[in-house]
């Protein structure tokens, strides 16, 4: 009884004080996209709503780790950006909150199917296809042919010229692995990874590092998401983007509300706002070339044209699950990474 009375008292206080101090509304925002995009989203949301935003940018793996570590005492409210797998994993582990946004009818079907596969605990905000980019100067300097397909990368003349991330530490590289398995079948997919291993000069820790190295001329070819490659090209690096001829896998950048969020109302406001065309158009200002999930969002001329890319029917539910991920990574560790180069 006493508890109920004090609870009501506390609720009254909260209501009274929130009316009294509306400016004290705040939101802790975990962002897993590129820094400048994160900054812009945070500032624009502050301008649009007057809610104070506390933003941390960490990669999706780091953020997922943090949310999991904090699960008994969540500090964050909303998690925006980064490849969809960790979001799905978070949903699977019940770290994120169910929310059905009123903005749904404005979204592409792939964004909604992402939500449905995770019991509405996450939603798609952008998508990007996997591919690779190469440094045109270095390719010419080394007299190498221009690659156009995945299998081209296996040619012996590219030995020591290809870079990709380590699937153990990078979501991008895991998507590559899972895409190859789905594209060629598991056995042939692993044969592909083994043959590719011979040409790899370094498995980087972070997903977009290979194309950055290629941009700076520290490596020739980088396997990454195409929008990352486009960004390097737009930034002035001599990069050419390739959409592999066999078809390719893709990611859906996602957004989730963290379970037990301390500012749930603000998190929902952000969620709805982030799905609006207006918020999604911000991507162009910071040279992010993903396809946005709102059908009315503008796309850049430099963006890879999704209609020209052969996309495989990527099974996010299966390949995003912890069990399958663990199995594939272990297999990669044992059968591929230990091979001599």
């Amino acid at each position: 009884m006493k508890r109920i009375v004090s609870l009501i008292g506390a609720l009254l206080f909260v209501t009274v004080s929130s009316i009294g101090a509306a400016s004290a509304d705040k939101l802790t925002y975990y962002c897993s996209a590129e820094e400048d995009w994160c900054q812009l989203m945070a500032r624009s949301f502050e301008d649009a709503t007057g809610i104070d935003v506390n933003m941390t940018r960490k990669s999706s793996g780091e953020t997922f780790a943090q949310i999991r570590a904090e699960s008994s005492n969540p500090k964050g409210d909303v998690w925006w950006g980064g490849t969809g797998d960790p979001h799905l994993q978070a949903a699977e582990e019940d770290l994120t909150e169910v929310y059905v946004s009123p903005m749904r009818d404005q979204l592409h079907p792939w964004a909604i199917s992402q939500a449905e596969s995770a019991d509405n605990k996450t939603i798609g905000i952008y998508s990007g296809a996997l591919g690779y980019g190469y440094n045109t100067d270095l390719l010419a300097a080394n007299n190498l042919p221009e690659p156009a397909c995945w299998k081209d990368l296996l040619k012996p003349e590219y030995k020591g010229h290809v870079q990709m991330a380590n699937p153990n530490s990078s979501g991008t590289a895991y998507t590559t692995l899972a895409s190859m398995v789905q594209l060629f079948g598991e056995d042939e997919g692993f044969e592909f990874m083994k043959a590719l291993h011979k040409n790899i000069n370094q498995y980087t820790k972070s997903g977009s590092a290979p194309i950055k190295a290629a941009g700076r001329g520290e490596s020739t070819i980088g396997i990454v998401f195409m929008h990352d490659a486009v960004k390097q090209a737009v930034n002035g690096f001599p990069i050419k983007v390739v959409a592999p001829c066999e078809g390719t896998g893709y990611e859906i950048g996602s957004m989730s509300i963290i379970k037990g969020a301390r500012n749930l109302e603000e998190a929902k406001k952000f969620y709805d706002w982030a799905l609006s065309a207006e918020a999604q158009n911000l991507a162009l200002q910071v040279n992010s070339f993903q396809i946005m999930s709102n059908v009315d969002a503008m796309s850049s001329d430099s963006a890879p044209d999704m209609s020209m890319i052969k996309l495989i029917d990527y099974d996010f539910l299966k390949y995003g699950s912890s069990a399958e991920r663990k199995r594939l990574l272990q297999k990669w560790d044992e059968e591929v990474s230990t091979l001599p180069q």
């Binding site: 960490k58 793996g61 780091e62 960790p86 699937p167 530490s169 895991y174 820790k205």
Partner: peptide, 26 residues
């Protein structure tokens, strides 16, 4: 090691990626 490591793995970066990487293994 993070910047220059190449394929030369050392403990300090391995620890970091064990915590933050896709494998997440505290």
């Amino acid at each position: 090691p993070l910047v220059l490591g190449g394929n030369f793995d050392v403990l300090s970066t391995e620890i970091f990626f064990a915590i933050v990487g896709a494998q997440y293994d505290q």
